[in-house]
Simulated assay, not measured.
Amino acid sequence: MIVCEDLVKIYKSADLEVFALQGLDLTVAEGELMAIIGNSGSGKSTLLNMLGGLDKPSAGKLFVNGIDLLKCSGKDLIRYKRETVGFVWQNNARNLIPYLTALQNIELPMLLKGRRKRLRALDLLEAVGLSHRAHNKLTQLSGGEQQRVAIAIALANEPRLLLADEPTGSVDSRMAEQILDLFRQINRDFGVTVVIVTHDPQLARKVDRVVAIRDGKTSSEIIRKVSYADELAAIQSETAADAENTHEEYAVLDRAGRLQLPEAYVEELGLRKSNKVLVKMEEGSIRLLPPEEE
């Protein structure tokens, strides 16, 4: 569904150049449920904007559903945003039009595409658990309900890819759990590929793969090794050790053979004192050691 190769994004302002992405590689399979995490300024929101057709890379390759986003004309990009991708913003003011009802908000993308499907809009409201709120306006909905309507809007035109930018950032922890469960349900029921950008590493509990971005590159991947159903069973049976050991973290080796070391390892080995590290092959394993002192 998504192929990023050596993706670079440079923002220029007067004589200043800022590298938001520095040769990022990423592949996302069709139907996958995954998250992208990283600290502020790591480049994760820049990547999401490019996947959504809101910004273009400075260099590299970016394909979504077979579409080359670097070569899209303006008209093709509009079609891409209407038909291929759905977007859920953290700020509900960007998701909803306040003077329209929940049902009318969901119908609007369909009207922009030249069709109106009242039954589909009602089905989407039911899918997000808000069929009883169809005729309520923005001021009559809670923050969590507004976010659920936003997810239904993003699904209105049957996109192949659903993007969510910090979708739980403006709700409490209980509602955040419900929204993440809803993304998993949508991924399963609609077969849509879901990419969630967040700063919360706890999202790994809800998704199948987490890609960490650091300094504009993918630094590690956390991959589920226990099915979500088995994890829930472990939690319900109170086997805490089993419930916690559900994912495995991997460092990412880029095309040039480079990898980023986890921050905790760098600190523990005292590698900040130098920009060098000893690399040794021992019995089929690679060992990384601090430089030998003079």
Results as ranks from 00 to 15, higher is better:
residue 82 R to I: 08
residue 72 C to P: 06
residue 132 H to I: 09
residue 129 G to I: 05
residue 136 N to P: 00
residue 73 S to A: 06
residue 117 K to T: 03
residue 111 L to N: 10
residue 110 M to Y: 11
residue 126 E to A: 15
residue 84 T to E: 06
residue 83 E to Y: 04
residue 91 N to G: 04
residue 109 P to E: 05
residue 99 Y to R: 10
residue 75 K to M: 05
residue 98 P to C: 07
residue 135 H to W: 07
residue 127 A to L: 15
residue 111 L to Q: 14
residue 95 N to I: 09
residue 95 N to E: 02
residue 125 L to Q: 13
residue 104 Q to R: 13
residue 94 R to F: 11
residue 131 S to Y: 00
residue 79 R to M: 02
residue 119 L to K: 11
residue 76 D to P: 00
residue 100 L to R: 10
residue 115 R to Q: 13
residue 118 R to A: 03
residue 90 Q to V: 09
residue 107 E to I: 13
residue 78 I to D: 04
residue 114 G to Q: 13
residue 119 L to R: 15
residue 102 A to N: 11
residue 122 L to P: 00
residue 73 S to N: 08
residue 91 N to W: 04
residue 77 L to V: 11
residue 79 R to I: 05
residue 122 L to R: 14
residue 75 K to R: 13
residue 92 N to S: 08
residue 110 M to E: 09
residue 123 D to S: 02
residue 72 C to H: 12
residue 137 K to A: 10
residue 99 Y to F: 11
residue 138 L to M: 14
residue 138 L to S: 14
residue 101 T to R: 00
residue 130 L to K: 02
residue 87 F to D: 01
residue 121 A to E: 03
residue 136 N to W: 06
residue 109 P to G: 07
residue 110 M to D: 09
residue 112 L to G: 11
residue 84 T to Y: 02
residue 92 N to W: 04
residue 116 R to N: 12
residue 98 P to Y: 01
residue 91 N to V: 12
residue 128 V to D: 00
residue 78 I to H: 06
residue 115 R to D: 13
residue 113 K to A: 15
